[in-house]
């Protein structure tokens, strides 16, 4: 791996970590699971500036580090499920080249929330969490639009130094 790539990985992963921390400081928004998804800024940025594979590595490293630093073991399953489903959907939409960072990030936000609920349903062996789905569905869409717009600006403005 080239040194410049290592540096780039480290920088974006660190940024994602800081964004996770900043998000944990924000006041909760009423319903559990409703959040802005700030770390997704770094992931969408990596997707557009680097590649899908790079975005996956950065996202998963972030999830593991955040769990080690602030979370607990139980939360890891939810986080990984959310991140994995989100990366898969974002990768697919990104590959079609029909969507900008807004569409990609919206789909990622919704997929992230859906993935977490599905794992929660499986782990708790209950289908009673369906009520959260529409709420998190819509909140994931709104958050995805915001994150998509900002990361679109970032991809355009941050200088690309090879």
């Amino acid at each position: 791996m080239k040194a410049s790539k290592v540096a780039q990985y480290g920088l974006i992963t660190a940024l994602a970590l800081v964004l996770s921390y900043v998000e944990s400081l924000l006041p909760p928004l009423g319903v559990p699971g409703v959040k802005l998804g700030l770390p997704n800024l770094a992931v969408v940025f990596a997707l557009y500036r680097l590649s899908w594979k790079d975005a996956c590595v950065i996202s998963l490293v972030r999830v593991v580090l955040v769990t080690l630093l602030f979370g607990n073991g139980a939360a890891l399953a939810y986080s990984v499920a959310g991140a994995a489903l989100s990366l898969a959907v974002m990768g697919l939409l990104w590959k079609t080249e029909r969507f900008s960072s807004v569409g990609v990030s919206v789909a990622g936000g919704v997929a992230h929330n859906a993935g977490q609920i599905l794992v929660a349903m499986a782990l708790l062996e209950t289908s009673r969490l369906a009520w959260y789905l529409p709420v998190l569905w819509v909140s994931g869409t709104v958050a995805g639009v915001l994150i998509g717009i900002v990361s679109g600006v970032l991809v355009k403005r941050v200088p690309d130094k090879k």
Binding site: F99, V106, A107, P134, V135, W137, V138
Partner: peptide, 22 residues
């Protein structure tokens, strides 16, 4: 961003339909 808008609209309609159903 036409495709993005269509996607967002579709997702919101789906989410709304799900909420309405519940």
């Amino acid at each position: 961003h036409r495709n993005d808008m269509l996607l967002v609209a579709a997702l919101l309609v789906l989410g709304g339909a799900l909420a309405l159903f519940l």
